[in-house]
Design a protein around this nucleic acid. Structure first.
Lengths: 193, 193
DNA sequence: GTCTATAATGGGATAGAC
DNA sequence: GTCTATCCCATTATAGAC
């Protein structure tokens, strides 16, 4: 239970910081910039987040929550229990995400690129997210009942990585279509056996 | 003693800087770190490279030269003039590159992630490289004579992006096989029509 | 009592001067 | 090469406003 009087201050600071971190990069954004943008005093920020690392960790945890919410919503719209349909929905959700105008790349992948050898909490959060994302694909592919699920999962994962990377810089249109169709073809090819 | 700098000094400094920039990131490496690692004086470095931006630009130009050398060697081993074989060789060369133990990602993509809104010379060099790489794929795909070359090029490019991204963090083995086989399938499918 | 504003700390950055 | 100037960083401490 937070003993802060203003209930929204933590969220407001975190939202501001998250927007800046995502837009300009964690390393490029200083605490002063966050403070100025949030319109708060230095002490307030440091009482809520004792260090920049804590603020960054909260940012990545917020990203994770958002990703989980979006993925759950997309998975919830798939009728029945077809793993192929769920894989398509998973890729479709990423296609939607990378198509948003504010999309600049996957926050976790960006963080790990910015801090390659990092072992702190943010790096752990980023790696956890990527591991879990990959595991989710493995889980769905395993339920397809194909002869070589590991190989198929590798390919789907490669396409997901390509989609995130491609959309992060160039226009996402071509990448989105390519990813969608490639996964569709993979699933169709797997079903034939 | 030589009043002109020792002939190898510029290269030695650049090699040292390149290794550090690539390994730890451009932002994370300071000029003092480069000077200490190169074992040179500050004046010598600043004589050859008047600013960090100049040093970074030289680093990326060196990366470009290395990539061109490696790509030309791979293309030279393809007998005849078959664009499909050249595309496979292109992907194969990247597979070899990302499989090297020191591989940590594509230097140009890493730079643009570190400096997203940058308009300086290094950013221009990075974007030029990516544009030219994409154009090379477009050029080869166009020579295949398929009905929708733009679509096929989008897919090959997505796989290349996925290969670089995937290999930058996780083990490259699965990604390499996945990319090779996906491109092979794409080219086989295109030939059937 | 909760916040803001500001100063000060200590470190490291690029870069120039000698 | 060393020494210095200037700036920005994260963080802490102080002092005052509502």
């Amino acid at each position: 239970m937070a003993r802060t009087a203003a209930p929204g201050s933590r969220e407001r600071i975190l939202d501001t910081a998250a927007g800046l971190f995502y837009r300009y990069g964690v390393r490029a954004v200083g605490m002063k910039q966050v403070i100025d943008a949030a319109g708060c005093g230095k002490n307030l920020l440091y009482t809520h987040f004792p260090s920049k690392n804590d603020l960054v960790a909260a940012y990545l945890r917020e990203c994770r929550r958002e990703r989980a919410r979006s993925a759950a919503a997309a998975a919830g719209e798939v009728p029945g229990d077809d793993p192929a349909a769920q894989l398509l929905a998973l890729v479709g959700e990423i296609v939607t995400t990378v198509g948003r105008p504010e999309f600049r790349g996957c926050a976790f992948r960006i963080y790990l690129t910015e801090f390659p050898d990092d072992q702190s909490e943010p790096a752990r959060l980023a790696r956890d997210y990527l591991r879990d994302s990959r595991a989710e694909i493995d889980r769905l592919v395993a339920r397809l009942g194909v002869t070589d699920p590991g190989q198929l999962a590798d390919r789907v994962w490669l396409i997901v990585e390509g989609l995130y990377a491609s959309a992060a810089r160039s226009e996402s249109a071509g990448a989105a279509d390519a990813a969608t169709q490639l996964v569709r073809d993979l699933l169709a090819g797997a079903r034939e056996r």
